[in-house]
Structures are given as structure tokens and as C-alpha cells.
Design a protein around this nucleic acid. Structure first.
Lengths: 338, 338
DNA sequence: GACTGGCACTCCGCCACCGAGAGTGCCAGC
DNA sequence: GCTGGCACTCTCGGTGGCGGAGTGCCAGTC
């Protein structure tokens, strides 16, 4: 159905439309891409492509623009991988060098990604599957309030305010010791399991405090795990002021909701493979005029999460995909090395 | 120079322009505000107001709009304080109820502020001046890396990755003990002072580890203090799509830079007083078409910081100021109560 | 059968033009 | 000091004409 020339034409339409931002016509196509046929022939092919749903016309007697389906075919079969420029490679190296801790890595990653792709970047905090509990601390702030602090083997620190109910310092110290010996080195899942039996073994006078504490611990372990997402490069949206209602507003609204962002990043493939969701393929309806390019990152089983960018469907997919992949790989290595 | 009627007219122009979003003319003014004079008289007054720089015309034969100077006078002398609606009061109560920890309070505050004012909200993390060091913990992650954790009396937890250089667990425990006894209960400033003398008292075998650790401690205490800022309500910007270049783009760019945000919030008065910076009064040049309404919050010396909103100069100052003040007060009380 | 040149047609974008409407400044008069 | 009247200016919406870009189709050619 689609012979080579038609595919070439589709590829040309996509590249041209992305760079020129205008519907592309048959004459321009033959001239710019040295197709050795006449405009009329190209028109015939375009008619077929349109019939098949790969391209469309904004109005009669305008050039053609790709549909979501057209972009999809382009991404799947036509886009040549565009290698990163030297400057981009250097940017990646220098951006990440000297990162301090997890927070810093994530912050730098999001900036980097936004800068290279010139789009809005989203980075999810690494999920620490293989992590184990390294230390549990209970700090009393005053007679009533204390702080439960949980340190994981990956260096992540979570805290939760707890009500001590006026328990004496000795009781707190006792409980801390019990919790540490019981839970140290366990995975979160195992810790949850074990925690309830710890509760049963507690002497009566620690029972009340222990219940509160383990509830807090449970909440830390279950709810928190890196549902956190960081966003950057929002001003890049201003490049699309002509698509205010279809792109700028919906993206700004999506960025406000962590839940939406997580859904957007969700269901990406294995690390190293870039997933592209084009227009209506997005799970979040208002973003039907934008595309998401995402990838998992983190090559160790210890740290694994996703990152990506959001932009108008009319974007330079080869470059963007290359950039997302490169950043994902680099950050993955960086995390693995420590 | 400016008699009562002229002031009334200026007030009317500001209120009308803010609500109608159109230059306001003499006839409309007389009708809507029951001024007992003719349009011609109003015109004469307007001519004076224009000469004095309080209002201006977008073009000849258009109505007048306020200048920054006009808004300034309005805010200083003319704006009647608009009490919050019942719904707004209830929103404040319910939004904050059930906040878990400092992070949660800040997150809720920013949402609340954005929702009530319908503008972009900015909240700075509380600076803990009166805070003292409550606990210092050192957790070893592996042979080389450890985590220094600092808990303050306000429940804030900071951490920093440190290089243990293969020091034995006993040395780490020893150092932890020394640091805790030496620094517990001290204010950050005092702790910095004291830390260097702790270093001198260390036995030779702890010297290397101690140096690393105290450097990390110093960095935590000095650099970190709540230069963090949280932003919310960005989609509210889309209400001003007609002012894309003057409002939307510059604000998005400002939001990307923590430094800029801190400067914007900077130099506000004492808690409870709302500071308004109109247009060119802003320290950040690109925001010359927008205003900042900010207030300090936190009525205890323990926790003190600023919050505010950014929006177009054409905003409802009385309502916005009332909302900012109300939220600042409420959050202040909330923090003080614990 | 595939490609091409030619041609009629459509639609957009631009510009000029016009009239209505809103608002002003100014002036003479009360 | 205020007012009614008047001429003037400028914006805004609608209309019409025109060039250009691009298409679809058809008959003809290789």
C-alpha cells in the first residue's frame, strides 16, 4: 500500500513541518528533497497518504500536515536516530559532575533534560526497590512530639512526626533499640510484615507508644516511595504561545498534579528504551495535542524510575528521543556508580 | 492638588479597570459611581490625574487606565480592606487541618493561597532562627559512604552525604557521641562556633573523620537554611493569555529561578503587614508588568519566612491583600501551635 | 500502468476602505 | 468652578478585492 516513495514523502512532510512550522505543499517537497518526480505525482501520493490517515489538510488548498498516526509511523519506522552533538555530550558530562546527593542528582537531571530538549522536563525520584532499612531514629522534640526518622541503604531519609503521648525518654530509647534490631537490613515489604510481630512482643508499657510508632513507620514505607516528581524547563512552553489553548494551558495544568505526571510517565518500557506517546495516545485527555517522550533510567535493580519530556506533537522526535535516551543512560550510570 | 473628588475618580478608575478589563471613560464613571457632576467635569479631573502621572491613555480617544503610580496611590490610601468571604474562611480552615509535617504545611499553604487569590502563589520554607540542634546522627551506608543527619528542635531534618574514608564503626559511634554532647541544644550560629573547638579536642585517630563531618555540618547549617521556595497555581497564569509577553512568559521564567523568587519575596515588613510591589517597583526587571503581594508569616521567633503571590498589575488589590494577610496569619498561628 | 503538464478552482492572508461608536479636548456660557 | 455642545481622533468590525499557494482532475505521453 505504502511504497518507498510514499514513505519518503511522509518522512519529508514530517521533517519539513516540524522545522518550518507550516503546512507543506507538493512543490516545496520536490524542490527541497530532490524527489525526481513532478509535483503532480507527489500530489497523487499525498492523496493516498491522506486517505490512509497519515496526513491531513488544515483547509482545502493548503499544504499537508502530519496526523498523530503519521507521526507514529515516522517514529516507528522513518526517524533516523540523530546522534547528539558534541556540545550536548559535554553538557551532560558537566551538568552531572559534582552532584551531591539524590536530591541534587534529580534537580540537575531535570535542568539538563530541559536544556537539551528545549521542552518541559519531568523526572521521577528513583524508586528504591532493592533498598533496605539502614537505621531508625526517634528524636524527641518536646514532651509530646517526636520525630521518627527512617534511613534507607540508598541514603534516602524520610521523617514523620509522631505523638509521643508523654512517654518517658527511657521508653523511647528502649523502643528505638527494639525497632532497630528487629528491622535493620530488611526490605520495606519485609519490614512491614515484621513490624506487626514486633508489636506483639512489646511489654505492656511500650504498647501504646509502639502502636503509634509503627503506624507512622508503615505510612512512611508504604505511601511515600518516590511518588515524587520534579519538573523543569517550564518557560520552554512559551515557545508555543501560538498553541496556547492546546498546549500551554493543558501542560501547565498537568504539571500542577503529581498524579497526572506519574500517569504520563507510567508504563514505559525497560531502561534504555525510549517510549513515545503521541497526542491522543496519552492517558490524560487534555494533552491530546502534545506528545510525551519518556524513558526508564537506572540500570541497577536498586534504583529505577522514569524521566521524560512533554511538548507539542509537532516536535523534532529524532533529536528529542536521542536526548532523552542519552540523559537516561547517563543518569543511570551515574546512580549505579554511586 | 488632589482633592477628594479626584481621589474618588482615581479609585473608581482602578476598581472599574480591574473588574471590566477595559479603559474606562468619563461617562461610564459618572453613571456607575453616581458622581453628581457631568462627564466634562470628570474629564477635567482626569486630565489633571493624567498630568500628575496617575493614569494614562492607551491611545487618544480611549478611556483611561491606571499607571503603576496610580495603583500605588490606590493601595496606599484608597483601597478599602475587603473582608474575606465565608467560603474563603472555611477554605483556609479545612485546607490546613490535618497537615502532617513542615513539608505538608508548606504544600498546603501554597495550594490554598493560589486557590483563594487565583494567582501564582509562592511560599518560602520557614527559616528557623530560634531553632536549636536537637540531634545529630551518623548512619553508615557502606564502608565509604555515610549520612550525616541533623534534626532541629522544630522538626526539620537535613541530611548530607559524607565520605567515611573507611573509618571503623566504633570511631563513627564515638564521634557521634561527642558531637551530640557538644552541640545539642545550641543554635546554629553557636554550633558553628563550637564545632571548631570540638575538632581541636578530638584524639588523633578521629581527626580526619571529624574534619569531614564538621565540614558537612557547616554546610548544612550555613547554606541550606530554607532558601527553599515552593510554587503553586501556575495554571492561573493562563487567565492572562492576552498579556503573554508581559506577564505569562516573564513570570514563568522567574519561577524557574529560586534566586529570583527569594529576591521577590525579600524585604517584606514584619509579620502581619502585607507588602505590595507594583510593576517597576519590583527588583526583577522582567516583571515590570506584574505585581507582587507578599507578607511575612510566623508569629513566633522560631519560624519565620515569607509568602506571597505574583500577578498582573491589573489585579484586585484589596481582595488579594486580604487573602495574603489572612493566609499568612493563619499559617503563622498554625506553626506556633504545632 | 505510472507519470506529467496544464488548468480550473478554492481558500487564505493582506490591504484598503468605510461607518459606527466611544471618548477626548476645548470653549463659551452659566 | 461646573456644564453643554461640538469638532476631532482613534479603534473596531465588517466588506470587498486581489494575489498567491496549493489542490484535484484530466488528458496525454512514455
Amino acid at each position: 500500500m505504502l511504497d518507498d516513495r510514499k514513505l519518503t514523502i511522509l518522512r519529508a512532510i514530517v521533517t519539513d513541518y516540524v522545522s518550518m512550522r507550516e503546512p507543506v505543499g507538493s512543490r516545496a517537497l520536490v524542490e527541497r528533497y530532490h524527489l525526481d518526480v513532478s509535483p503532480a505525482t507527489v500530489r497523487n501520493d499525498m492523496a493516498v497518504l491522506e486517505e490512509e490517515g497519515y496526513i491531513t489538510q488544515p483547509h482545502t488548498s493548503a499544504g499537508r500536515i502530519p496526523t498523530d498516526k503519521g507521526y507514529r509511523l515516522f517514529v516507528d519506522r522513518l526517524g533516523a536516530v540523530k546522534p547528539l552533538s558534541g556540545a550536548e555530550r559535554r553538557a551532560i558530562e558537566t551538568f552531572m559532575a559534582g552532584a551531591l546527593d539524590i536530591d541534587d542528582v534529580v534537580r540537575r537531571t531535570v535542568r539538563l533534560l530541559a536544556q537539551i530538549t528545549q521542552q518541559v522536563a519531568i523526572v521521577q525520584y528513583p524508586i528504591v526497590y532493592g533498598a533496605s532499612i539502614r537505621h531508625i531514629e526517634i528524636v524527641t522534640l518536646n514532651a509530646d512530639r517526636g520525630l521518627l526518622i527512617l534511613v534507607s541503604s540508598t541514603g534516602k531519609v524520610d521523617q514523620h512526626i509522631v505523638d509521643l503521648g508523654g512517654a518517658p525518654e527511657s521508653a523511647v530509647a528502649d523502643l528505638r533499640g527494639r525497632l532497630n534490631t528487629a528491622l535493620m537490613g530488611l526490605s520495606p515489604a519485609k519490614a512491614v510484615e515484621r513490624a506487626t510481630s514486633v508489636l506483639d512482643e512489646l511489654p505492656a508499657d511500650l504498647r501504646a507508644l509502639g502502636t503509634v510508632m509503627i503506624a507512622a513507620l508503615l505510612e512512611l514505607v508504604t505511601t511515600d516511595p518516590s511518588t515524587r516528581v520534579v519538573v523543569g524547563g517550564v518557560p520552554n512552553l512559551t515557545r508555543f504561545s501560538d498553541q496556547f489553548e492546546t498546549t500551554v494551558r493543558p501542560v501547565l495544568e498537568a504539571l500542577e498534579e503529581q498524579v497526572v505526571l506519574l500517569r504520563l510517565l507510567g508504563e514505559v518500557g525497560i531502561a534504555g528504551d525510549v517510549t513515545v506517546r503521541i497526542g491522543h495516545e496519552n492517558p490524560y485527555e487534555p494533552l491530546r495535542a502534545t506528545s510525551v517522550v519518556a524513558s526508564a533510567y537506572g540500570n541497577s535493580p536498586d534504583a529505577w524510575a522514569t524521566l521524560g519530556i512533554v511538548g507539542p506533537t509537532r516536535m523534532d522526535y529524532p533529536s528529542t528521543m536521542a536526548a532523552v535516551r542519552a540523559v537516561a543512560r547517563y543518569v543511570g550510570r551515574f546512580l549505579a556508580e554511586g
